[in-house]
């Protein structure tokens, strides 16, 4: 009996050690990635890198200003396209929680969320690029907005569902009509959750490359025309990474550093918003 107990305790310890070891070991890639990005990225980043356009190979210097602007434009475009729809659908789902339509919509949201980004890229190509015969910022915005949509819908629905029922009752009891209750009482109370969802969806799409390959495409020049191809940070990283030139590889790291900073920034702000703007009941 005694030996049996010892064996069990040893097994327990061994298992625990294995779990800790494996868990820590899986952090190794993260450390390595962050190390590579920081080491190779910071070396490239300076004012010129941020403010200049790409130069052809052979010419020194240049930067990724067009990609930064392009990413910003794409973010704005896809936000405009997706946020109103996302929030409205989220309200519908939280209000008509048990309806038949709500169940179907929820299923669609799950499917949309899991749809590979490359497929969405193709669809945006067929919808926008093919008819207009040109890659364009708009088509990129359409692709990215489809990717944002499920995240925003889910965040809105889940936030609003957590609102205590007495809040709604209080407002309705004052004679405030239903739609105003939703828009002026429920929605503002849950604004932190919705904003968090939007920020997380932005974090998700900012780094997306696949849906842009055949939509926004890429553009080594500055472009403000929404109907023309536009550059973006992830696309630039891809383009530079696949090139054979070490100078461009360095630029890819620089752009990666910025992209990671932006994505993590969105995540951090989302956390801050979630914590700070939370309405206490």
């Amino acid at each position: 009996m005694k030996d049996h107990t010892t064996a069990r305790m040893i097994k327990d310890k061994v298992f625990r050690a294995t779990v800790i070891l494996l868990a820590c070991f899986s952090m190794l890639p993260l450390l390595l990635i962050l190390y590579f990005i920081t080491r190779n990225g910071i070396a490239v980043i300076n004012w010129e890198f941020l403010s200049q356009l790409p130069r052809p190979i052979g010419e020194d210097g240049g930067g990724v200003f067009n990609a930064i602007v392009g990413t910003a434009i794409l973010i704005i475009l896809s936000s405009i396209l997706s946020i109103p729809f996302g929030i409205t659908t989220g309200i519908y789902l939280s209000e008509k929680s048990d309806g038949k339509i709500a169940h179907i919509v929820r299923l669609c949201v799950v499917v949309l969320q899991g749809t590979p980004s490359i497929v969405i890229g193709i669809v945006a190509y067929l919808w926008v690029v093919a008819p207009f015969h040109s890659f364009s910022a708009i088509s990129g915005g359409v692709a990215l907005s489809i990717m944002m949509l499920p995240v925003i819908i889910k965040a809105t629905e889940e936030t609003l569902k957590l609102m205590p029922y007495h809040l709604k009752e209080a407002s309705l009891a004052l004679g405030v009509p239903y739609h105003k209750t939703i828009l002026k009482v429920i929605l503002p109370t849950g604004i932190n959750g919705i904003l968090t969802g939007i920020l997380l969806s932005l974090a998700r799409i900012t780094g997306e490359t696949a849906p842009l390959l055949f939509t926004a495409f890429g553009n080594q020049f500055m472009n403000w025309n929404l109907f023309k191809p536009i550059d973006s940070l992830p696309y630039r990283i891809f383009y530079y990474a696949m090139s054979p030139y070490p100078e461009w590889h360095a630029f890819a790291w620089g752009a990666s550093f910025m992209l990671v900073a932006v994505v993590l920034g969105f995540n951090l702000i989302a956390r801050g918003v979630a914590a700070k703007w939370k309405v206490q009941f």
């Binding site: 890639p29 993260l30 390595l32 990635i33 962050l34 590579f36 990005i37 974090a203 900012t206 780094g207 997306e208 490359t209 696949a210 992830p234 990283i237 891809f238 990474a241 890819a252 790291w253 990666s256 992209l259 990671v260 994505v263 993590l264 995540n267």
Partner: peptide, 13 residues
């Protein structure tokens, strides 16, 4: 953080 790093950067790395 690991989940937030864009796919293209995993590729580059």
């Amino acid at each position: 953080v690991l989940a937030g790093i864009p796919s293209v950067i995993y590729g580059l790395w």
